[in-house]
Design a protein around this nucleic acid. Structure first.
Lengths: 333, 333
DNA sequence: GACAATATTGCAACCGGTTGCAAAATTTTT
DNA sequence: AAAAATTTTGCAACCGGTTGCAATATTGTC
């Protein structure tokens, strides 16, 4: 069916090796034969089979991309960047949807069977041991958006969630808020734990006692609404730090539905700065996570690891920043 | 590095064929040898290499999934369903992000090189000839969310956009609206063209002249806002049919920012019924597209085509329905 | 228990490439 | 112009599986 090396070789009157070398960079071919080969290839419409090449070289150019939150639009932004950036490097993502799974084993087998060159675990809700499962199966692995935890041995690219939590606290205090609530993502998510620690820690240091500390069931809209319903039962909440923009939007909708105004009655600060944070209906003040940097860097790192599997462990941490929009009352109280 | 057939065969004391047959369904192996093989495989942690198998069988279990809109959260829902449903069938999506490309050629080459078993073009903004490029390269292809156009020869799974446009018109008229505007997606998108035709056609049939007909630059939020800004310049618009929920949300935000109330001053009906349509801030009345059915059906179809490439052309059309929420004024005017 | 029918097994070729090695061709040096 | 150094080329083995075919083993029949 498809045109093969052999046919090109015959038409060009050279050996199969010559054809192969024409399409392998770094290989030694004279200009003359290269020309002959290229002409023949053009005539026949030849494209080397990546499958066959993979078998011989043990490289597939496939990168496993593990994700487990397909409810949060920020992941569409993440996929967009990943697919394009990988594409640009001649790599392809092999997406694994972990929604239905809790055990890494199945995914590990699957990616091993496809012989992926590397794995990027792109989620902030899984503990590093999950990423470690891939490492144990001998694949280069990078945990993007992961927790920089000591004691694990997987490369991590992400942010300092604790520092970011602190930034959120500072921002609220700066705006003069005193009755502050924390509305985190799922309590089991490492990102939430760290943000909580940074946020609540700073409040404590400043002598502020949070009026409520609560966790949503998921990094999702409805989860945010449901949790906010509880927060609103606390008398006099002035401001809420939501551990995720989507949660924040849910929380805001619930707040407004209950008749409160944002930011006049209750202020909000979110997390991520997803595209939707700019929407007029929300216009969210939020902590921006440098998604772009994290993604590019994680691709870079995994590509390096493919060449250099024993590279010493790296933690790449990018800084966040607060983006002020319209969900906190003005400074001058 | 990895455990191979050969090693398992040696440990089990059988031929390589026996091992291969153990993992090929439909092949003939006695219980006795199967047991021996499985034991050996377990001890060694053997997994057959899909790459090697692909080379021999000419099947990769990879399905190219072509998409070109990574701005619209509905696509995250689409990806979620695709990845999971394919996964469940032992298939894997190989995602192609067309954002940067206009010419199918590059993607065709790429998917050919990976020798994908089939291709699903999941977009409503591309003309069928785009999908045809894959067919011409001899891959089974299904155009999901595509236009059921006569004269092309690619299988299509989708909806009758024209009928859906008509439904939107009927709904608005039923609600007693008279000064009606159309705010479609990009004019070049076949889905928009068809929705416009159905919508405007029905208005015409009912003797209603639309007060504005306008197209957003993309199926996106900002595009919706920008276009709505123009629509609002028309005196006395009462209701708007937006060709997409996301556009609709942008349009509503613009409307509200300009001081109009929804639905009291201006009513909206969207298209798709994405998850966010239920959000409190929008609570969109919209035409629901049966995404789920379309996706499952397109996977089914492409899987069938893999076995039966010459299967006669199919157009699978699923019905839509109007979901009434809160963006149109009550019936009794 | 002999014979036919059926099921299982191993051999060897093949899928479409890559690559180490030695031979052949070309270029450089003297 | 011959010798040495360098580049290019083809051979053949290999990557890790599958599969048609013939040989062998098992099961069923009378």
């Amino acid at each position: 069916m498809a045109v093969t090396l052999k046919e090109v070789a015959e038409l060009a009157g050279v050996s199969r090796s010559a054809v192969s070398r024409t399409y392998t960079d770094g290989a030694s071919v004279s200009d003359k034969t290269r020309k002959k080969v290229e002409k023949a290839a053009r005539e026949l419409g030849y494209r080397p089979s990546l499958i066959a090449r993979s078998l011989a070289t043990n490289r597939t150019k496939l990168i496993g991309l593990i994700a487990n939150n397909f409810q949060n639009p920020i992941f569409l932004e993440v996929f967009d960047l990943y697919t394009r950036a990988l594409q640009k490097r001649g790599l392809r993502p092999l997406i694994v949807n972990l929604t239905d799974e809790t055990d890494p084993e199945h995914s590990v087998q699957m990616l091993r069977q496809y012989n992926v060159d590397g794995v990027i675990v792109a989620t902030s809700t899984l503990r590093p041991y999950f990423a470690k499962a891939f490492k144990d199966a001998n694949m280069p692995v990078v945990h993007a958006f992961g927790r920089a935890e000591v004691g694990t041995d997987v490369h991590v690219v992400g942010i300092d969630n604790q520092a970011c939590g602190k930034m959120a606290a500072e921002t609220l205090l700066l705006h003069g808020y005193e009755k502050i609530a924390f509305l985190g993502g799922p309590e089991s998510a490492t990102s939430t734990q760290d943000r909580a620690m940074g946020f609540l820690g700073h409040l404590r240091d400043q002598g502020v006692v949070p009026v409520d500390v609560r966790y949503a069931d998921a990094y999702g809209y409805q989860a945010g609404r449901d949790a906010m319903r509880e927060v609103l039962k606390v008398e006099g909440v002035e401001a809420v730090f939501c551990g995720d923009d989507l949660i924040c939007m849910g929380a805001m909708d619930e707040t407004r539905q209950k008749g409160f105004r944002v930011p006049d009655d209750i202020g909000f600060i979110g997390f991520n700065d997803m595209a939707m944070a700019q929407w007029q209906a929300y216009n969210l003040t939020t902590v921006r996570q440098p998604t772009h940097d994290i993604i590019l860097s994680s691709i870079d790192l995994v590509a390096t690891l493919v060449e250099e599997p024993e590279k010493s462990l790296e933690l790449r941490i990018f800084p966040c920043e607060v983006v002020e929009r319209g969900t906190l009352r003005p400074f001058s109280q």
